[in-house]
Amino acid sequence: MAAFTQIIPLPTSVEMVEVLVARSALGLALELSLNQVQLEGDSEIIFNALSKGGMDSPSYGHIIKDINHFSSAFQCLTFSHTRRIGNKVWMEEIPLEFESVYFADIP
């Protein structure tokens, strides 16, 4: 399990944020030498496009192509759409040694 934060300049749409985050997450997975990755997001449009291998969008189609290019580097890569309520941290998956760090970061 890994986590990161990134400041994204003012995006043009929610879909643009989703594809930028997906591309950054795969970049992190590559840096960590992970070979099995599951990406989840709440944009059904984007995650359906990622699952099917592409989308012709003038604003973010090129980023989806980047993501598809990254895909070949993984033994197993899945894309899953989750409802917005599913965008949360599951406490049972945080290793005990990181719980104090996680709770210290909550206001």
Rank of each mutant, 00 (worst) to 15 (best):
L77P: 02
F79L: 03
T5Q: 05
V14P: 04
G53K: 04
E40V: 03
N35V: 03
S43W: 07
L96S: 12
I64N: 01
I8L: 12
F74I: 02
Q36H: 10
E92D: 15
K65Q: 00
Q36S: 10
A104M: 05
Y60A: 05
S24K: 15
S57G: 11
F103A: 08
M1L: 08
S57I: 05
A104Y: 01
V14I: 08
E99W: 11
V19H: 01
I94E: 05
L20R: 03
A25L: 05
H69V: 06
I67H: 03
A104P: 01
S59L: 08
E18K: 14
P9E: 15
M16T: 13
S72E: 00
P58I: 02
Q36E: 10
E15D: 13
S43R: 04
L28E: 02
S24Y: 12
I7L: 10
A22Y: 03
L30D: 09
T78H: 11
F74M: 09
V19K: 00
E44S: 08
G54Q: 02
E92W: 14
E99L: 15
S72N: 13
I106V: 10
A3K: 06
L30P: 03
E15Y: 05
S33M: 04
T82R: 03
P107V: 11
R83E: 13
R83Y: 13
E44P: 02
L50E: 08
H81L: 07
S57L: 00
Y60W: 12
V37Q: 05
S13I: 01
F74E: 02
G27Y: 15
S51G: 03
P58T: 03
H69W: 11
P107C: 07
N87F: 06
S51A: 15
I63M: 10
D105V: 05
S80C: 10
Q75D: 11
A104E: 07
W90M: 14
D56K: 14
E97I: 03
F98E: 05
T82P: 00
E99N: 11
N68H: 01
I8C: 04
P95C: 10
M16R: 09
P107K: 11
V101C: 11
N48H: 09
R84S: 10
I45D: 08
I64T: 06
H62V: 04
F79G: 12
F47V: 00
Y102R: 15
R84Y: 06
N68S: 13
M16I: 12
F98V: 09
A104R: 14
L30V: 01
M1E: 09
